[in-house]
């Protein structure tokens, strides 16, 4: 191959050679040139600040950054703060409920939508629409809906059911469930869309085969279809976990971490300690804790995804 192309290129092509190598060099460098700005932005905006945050979390920074080294002192302080404990408990409570309810509802809706129903396109859009709203809008809207003076409680009482009470958002022990309700409302359509795509990818003759063998519809879903949705489950779980760990705007708009700090989440905690309470070191430590949690979820996921890719799946 090389012999042939060289001998063919020799007669009369000598003057063109620099141009050819220039364009070859350009072709080699162009992708890197195009990628460079975004690479630079990510490098500085993400990784540099991760490193900086890590450093701050190991320093004695309070209101302003101080570049000394105090070891894990800020982490000790963090874990001795009751408010951080509330935040961690809330995170697990919120993530668990949010994932369970969103996945259950999303899967149910996807299965129902997959039964060859009429106006599927319209319904799909309706369910997916909350995803298009920002969490701020969702939080504000649900703050009104859940407010006993304005929302559901008021409406039901005005219908005549005077004793009806739905005041979860005003009570510290239940307020976190209101955050779950709003988050589920926003994300269920998204889970449904992923599950629906998974369902559409299943060969219908598999279902026919199971029917002929006498399997009931619930059995077909339980034994055959849901196991086939494993990749969809994985995607939904990872994406929702990450949404829930970084959920900040929703809590801020809906409850502002209240009442009485009862809906504090790691993200709101981090924001409050870093920028409002002049304890930058503790805030940075909490940020690093969140990063670790996200990494613990994302890294195995990426690993399994990339490994499957190299196996050609």
């Amino acid at each position: 191959m090389t012999d042939i192309s060289q001998s063919a290129a020799v007669p009369g092509t000598a003057p063109q050679r620099p141009a050819a190598t220039l364009s070859a060099r350009l072709a080699r460098w162009l992708p890197r040139l195009v990628m460079a700005p975004s690479f630079l932005v990510v490098l500085i905006g993400v990784y540099l600040f991760i490193a900086w945050t890590l450093w701050i979390s190991l320093s004695s920074s309070a209101m302003l950054p101080r570049y000394d080294f105090v070891g894990l002192e800020q982490y000790v302080r963090l874990w001795n703060t009751p408010r951080w404990h509330t935040a961690v408990i809330n995170l697990f409570l919120f993530t668990g409920l949010f994932l369970a309810v969103t996945i259950a509802l999303g899967l149910l809706m996807a299965i129902l939508l997959d039964q060859n129903i009429r106006a599927e396109g319209v319904l799909r859009t309706v369910y997916l629409y909350p995803m298009a709203l920002s969490f701020i809008v969702t939080g504000t809207a649900w703050k009104w809906v859940l407010n006993p003076e304005l929302g559901v409680e008021k409406v039901v009482q005005s219908w005549g059911w005077d004793t009806f009470a739905f005041d979860w958002i005003t009570r510290p022990e239940t307020a976190i469930y209101c955050v779950v309700i709003a988050a589920v409302w926003q994300s269920t359509g998204f889970a449904m869309a992923i599950f629906l795509a998974g369902l559409r990818g299943i060969d219908s003759s598999i279902i026919k085969a199971a029917q002929i063998e006498g399997a009931s519809l619930p059995r077909i879903y339980a034994s055959i279809i849901v196991p086939l949705l494993r990749p969809a489950f994985l995607s939904v779980i990872v994406l929702l976990s990450y949404i829930s760990i970084k959920s900040f705007d929703l809590v801020l708009a809906l409850t502002n971490a209240g009442p009485g700090g009862s809906t504090e989440m790691p993200s709101t905690f981090m924001f409050a300690y870093t920028f409002q309470r002049n304890q930058m070191g503790v805030g940075a430590a909490s940020a690093i804790m969140m990063l670790m949690t996200v990494a613990a979820i994302i890294i195995p996921y990426l690993y399994s995804e990339l490994r499957e890719d190299t196996h050609g799946h």
Binding site: D203, I206, A209, A210, E213, G214, A215, R219, I224, R230
Partner: peptide, 25 residues
């Protein structure tokens, strides 16, 4: 009993489980 063009095997089950599925039901 039916054999399909796309085979319609249950992808998450082993061959044995595929064959036994109907009998199990």
């Amino acid at each position: 009993a039916m054999v399909f063009q796309s085979y319609a095997l249950y992808p998450t089950m082993t061959v044995r489980q595929n064959i036994e599925f109907g009998m199990k039901i």
